[in-house]
Each structure stands twice: as C-alpha cells, then as structure tokens.
Simulated assay, not measured.
Amino acid sequence: MKQVILSVIGLLLVLPGFAQTNTPFYYNDYWKLTTREDAVYFRTGALDTTHLVFAGAVKDYFRSGQLQMSGSYQAGLRHGPFVFYYANGQTKIKGNYDLGQRVGEWHYYYPEGSLKQRVEFTDNDFYVWEYYDSLGNTQVDNGTGTWQNSYYEPGNPSKIIVEGKFVNGKKDGKWKCSNEYGRLYYVETFKEGEFVKGKAVNAIGGRGGKYEQELNNKLLPPFKLSIAEQFIFAREDVQEEYPYLAKIVVSEEAGFNTVDVQPMYPGGMHQAYRLVTNHLVYPERARREGIQGKVFVQFVIDKDGSVTQAKTIKGIGGGCDREAERIVSLMKDWEPGYKDGEPVRVRMVLPITFQLTPNLESRY
C-alpha cells in the first residue's frame, strides 16, 4: 500500500452572523494549542465559534508579555495591516493582507532594526526591490541582484535555503532550493519573471520529476499563521481547555511537518476560496430543514496534481456532505507535494462551512 501523507487546510463559505468568545489561546513553540502553564506564546482576540475562525483584531504575545504580532481577520481571512516583532521589541515584518493575500509593499528587518528587504506582492507573485545581507551589504538594488531567503519548517531540523537572481524586480535565470547542508531539492529557470521550467531532485541527488508550475515556497508567510488558524492541539487532553473547539477533529499526525513542499492550488488558496464561493450550491433539503454547520472532506492530491478519494469524514447531512465532496472534486490541477525531491501523494482535510444567510432563507 502506497504511503499517503496527511495535511490540513481550511476554507469557509459565508459568515453572516456569529457567536464569539474572547478567551485567550495558548500555544507551544510550534503554535499548537496547549495549556497556559506550557505556553510559549498566547493570543488575544475574538473567535467566531459558529464557524471556528478568528474575527476582527488579534494580538500575539511572547510568554514574557512582549507583543509578537498584531493583525486582523475578516470572514476568517487575514485582512489589513499585519506587524510581526522580535522578542526584543524590534519590528520583524510589516505589510498588508487583502482577504488572505499579501498585497503591496512589505518590509523585513533584522533584529537590531536595520532593513533586510523591501518586497512587493502582486498577482500571486513577489518582486524584491531592495535586499541587504546581515552585514548591511547591498545584494539587490533597485530590483536587480542576488537574493537569498532561509527559513525553518515545523518538524524539519534543517534550514531551507532558496536563492536566485532578480533583474528589474523580477526573477531571472536559475533558482535553486536546498537545505543548509547542501542537499538540493529543486532547480527552476525563469526569464524576465516568467517561469520556464522546474526540476525536482531526489534524495540521492539524481534526477527527479519535471514540473511546469513554480513552487511557491520562496517567501512564505510565517508558518505560525496557518497552524494557529487550524487549531491543532499539542496533546489530546488540551482540547478540554477549549470546549468551544470541540467540533474540530484533527489528529496529532496532521500538520505541515511531513513534506518538503506542500501541494499548491493554482493561484493559491485564495483562488480555492473563490471556487468554493462561486460554485457551491446550498442543497434544497438543507435549506428547507435549516441545516447548517461544517463538513470535513478528506481527499488526496495525487502525484500528478489530480484530486482523488474525496469523502466526508464528518458531515451534517441534508445533502451538504455530497455537495462538499462535489466542490472538492472541482479543485483540479494542483501542484503536487514533494518529499525528498519526488512528487508524493498528500492527504488533506478541507472543512467547508454551510451557513444560511437571512437573504437565502427569505427566498424559500
């Protein structure tokens, strides 16, 4: 039996009105929910307990009480200014979201306060206009130069390094992704900002699979955001601390720890969200009987990016389960996940919320 790797993503359909709680959320160092006693970070802000998403302003803090992040959510999506801070109080990253998408100029800083890079996000891509190394040497000036980004993924002890060249703000030439020990994951080629080709590299340095869409791991948002938004529990007993999250069923094996590169929906998850809102049809029986709630659909992104094995693992009936499965099956042509430079099958769980708005109810 082929191995299937588990991951979790989340979307919602509509958020008209909701019940909420302002109880603090406590996180471990991987941003999984834990107890107050074991917390490394904590968050304040409103949770929409009907749809299980954050709503309005949120603030994250280090255990010391020092601010770690401020931002806000609209309909469960990051929206408006977000600012991240180092433990010493210096600004780390700042920029704006528009319904889940980074937009406009973002600024990144080193711990002592000097500018690291100035980046512009637009049309699901990014353009680097300024970049300085840790010694203050200019590496990218007015959009041209050599750029590098390094980061850690949860559960992966090796630092991931992405490097390549920008010309007039756009990616150009060969780009590569490797770990800090020199193990190569992939090589991509660009021309004037346009993706030309990509090749994954397998675990022993040999030729891996070729692919025709850029892998979007070069300048990811802080991993904490996605994990905190999924409400993953550090231990099973922690769930008792958060009774309003009782509807969430996510095993400890779920997460972002198991693949080198996560599957990517064309255009990003913002486009997946648009597909749901544009194509989901509220089942007649569910409307008639007032059935609302969240359907959890499990599915597999195969090695070729196709969606298979869509099935409801927790439903609400009234035709909603079948409709949620239909919508998931429409999400075609994913960029597959990669492990050790090879495409792999990745199992995902997608919660879709069905909520009747007053306008919908008044039509029937």
Rank of each mutant, 00 (worst) to 15 (best):
Q239H: 05
F62H: 11
P81E: 15
Q213E: 10
K94I: 08
V295K: 03
L99T: 14
K303D: 05
T23A: 14
K197Y: 04
A310Q: 04
Y152Q: 11
P351S: 06
I316V: 09
Q3V: 10
T258I: 04
V328K: 01
Y181M: 13
L13Q: 13
A46K: 15
S72H: 09
Q117P: 02
G293L: 00
R63N: 15
G267D: 03
E284L: 08
C320Y: 06
K165C: 14
G205S: 10
H107Y: 12
L13W: 13
F18Y: 15
D172K: 09
A75D: 15
V58H: 10
L115Y: 08
Y181E: 13
K116P: 03
G255W: 02
I313G: 03
V238Q: 06
L135T: 15
E252A: 13
G104N: 02
T312K: 12
Y338D: 06
S226D: 12
S150G: 10
Y73W: 07
R207F: 07
A254Y: 14
P157Q: 06
L135R: 13
P266A: 03
E153R: 14
V128F: 09
A324C: 03
L220G: 10
T122W: 04
I301V: 14
T146G: 03
A246P: 01
A203H: 02
R347A: 08
G17K: 15
K191R: 14
R285A: 02
G71S: 13
L350F: 04
V281F: 04
A39L: 11
A324G: 05
Y110H: 08
R207G: 04
T308Y: 01
R235K: 00
D260W: 01
Y30H: 13
Y151F: 14
G341C: 02
E37Y: 11
G169W: 06
S134L: 11
V187T: 11
Y61V: 07
E361Q: 08
G255Q: 07
Y27P: 02
K332M: 02
L11S: 06
M348A: 09
G209D: 01
T49R: 05
Y73L: 05
S134D: 15
V8I: 02
V58D: 12
L225V: 11
